Simulated scan of single mutants.
Amino acid sequence: MKLLRLGNSDDIDPSVPDDQKNWYVAGKVLEEAIGEPVETVVKAIWPGEELPRKVSEWIDEYRPDMVFLKVTWVWYGYESVPRRIERIFGRAGKPVARAGLRAAKRPRLAHTWWFRTGRRAAHRVIGGDTQWHSDAVLETMEATIRKVVARENVALLVKGTGGGRRNEGPLRGQFERFAKRRAYVEGNVEKLCHELHVPYVGTGPRKPEEQRDLAKGDRIHPGATGHYWMGRQEGLALIDAWKASGGTVRAD
């Protein structure tokens, strides 16, 4: 089986080896269920206007049996200080914003307590802006989902990612706004999936070991323990989605 995974930065995080990442674990869970190898093509996506076209091209190129689409909470729910600086100061603020975004992508910096403390302090003073407006994310997700649904013999699973988040870490001080955005975005995506008969799964509460694992890093990206539990959850959801599409699994 070939699986096209439309994921996020977790999938390409250099601090976690590929054979410990969630997509690898999920693939192994699915392999065991269907009795054949699973090849996963990983694409870390952003909800720009070009995404539906790109997904259509990837389906033509890779010819997947199944597509897994993640609706990432960071797109619409995380208020970024660099984005606020860029919006306020325009062109003059872009070098500072780019430097901040680059720093956040470097585990050696982003996983330190002083970086996290400085980020919280800057957020209190400057504030933050989301990467995309909730309505823009919904528009792109709907167009992308419909592109996949229009393809015959391609199964689809859609996953919301914000349900396991707490009022702490990078969401401290903005959790109420985040929760409203999450309910709006994920609620509408789930409704669309229901109308189109597409399997949808959310993220439930994190296990204690997952929460501790998350706290070791930048409070956004999980470590190996979080990847393992997430991969197990996603693998089981992929099995259910495959069966819902008419695919067969091995008898227990």
Rank of each mutant, 00 (worst) to 15 (best):
Arg84Ile: 02
Tyr200Cys: 09
Gly217Val: 02
Gln211Asn: 13
Leu6Met: 11
Met141Asn: 06
Tyr184Thr: 09
Phe89Lys: 07
Arg182Gln: 11
Leu138His: 00
Glu49Pro: 06
Asp240Cys: 08
Tyr24Thr: 10
Gly187Ile: 12
Pro14Thr: 11
Lys105His: 10
Thr130Leu: 07
Arg63Ser: 15
Val16Ser: 03
Asp18Gln: 13
Lys180His: 08
Gly231Val: 05
Leu4Gly: 00
Ser134Pro: 14
Phe68Gln: 09
Arg172Val: 09
Gly7Ile: 07
Arg165Ile: 10
Lys207Tyr: 07
Val96Glu: 10
Val74Gln: 15
Leu109Cys: 06
Gly27Asn: 01
Asp252Thr: 15
Ser9Glu: 13
Gly162Tyr: 02
Leu101Tyr: 05
Glu139Lys: 14
Gly235Ile: 00
Glu79Ala: 14
Arg63Val: 14
Ala251Lys: 15
Ile126Ala: 12
Glu50Lys: 10
Glu195Asn: 12
Glu79Ser: 13
Pro17Tyr: 13
Arg106Phe: 07
Lys147Val: 15
Asn188Asp: 09
Ala44Asn: 08
Gly202Pro: 05
Leu4Gln: 00
Pro52Glu: 15
Gly48Val: 11
Ser56Ala: 14
Leu238Tyr: 04
Arg151Ile: 02
Leu109Arg: 09
Trp58Ala: 10
Val81Asn: 02
Val185Asn: 04
Gly162Met: 05
Leu192Gly: 01
Ser245Arg: 04
Arg83Cys: 03
Ala44Tyr: 02
Val154Asp: 03
Arg102Gln: 03
Arg165Tyr: 08
Arg151Asp: 00
Gly164Ala: 12
Arg250Asp: 07
Leu30Lys: 02
Arg124Asn: 14
Gly48Gln: 08
Leu196Val: 11
Asp135Ile: 11
Pro199Phe: 11
His227Gly: 06
Val55Ala: 03
Val41Ala: 09
Glu57Pro: 08
Leu101Trp: 05
Leu157Lys: 05
Gly217Asp: 02
Trp75Gly: 03
Glu234Cys: 13
Leu4Trp: 00
Ser15Phe: 08
Ala33Thr: 04
Lys94Gly: 02
Pro14Trp: 12
His111Pro: 00
Trp114Arg: 12
Ala103Gly: 04
Gly235Met: 01
Ala122Phe: 08
Tyr76Met: 04
Glu61Gly: 05
Arg98Lys: 06
Arg165Pro: 01
Leu101Gln: 07
Gly128Met: 03
Lys21Pro: 02
Ile45Met: 03
Glu36Gln: 14
Gly169Lys: 04
Arg120Ala: 15
Gly226Asp: 01
Val38Glu: 00
Glu152Gly: 15
Ala33Lys: 03
Arg84Thr: 06
Arg250Gln: 13
Pro52Ala: 15
Ala44Glu: 05
Gly223Val: 01
Thr248Glu: 12
Met66Tyr: 02
Lys147Ser: 14
Lys94Arg: 10
Thr203Ile: 08
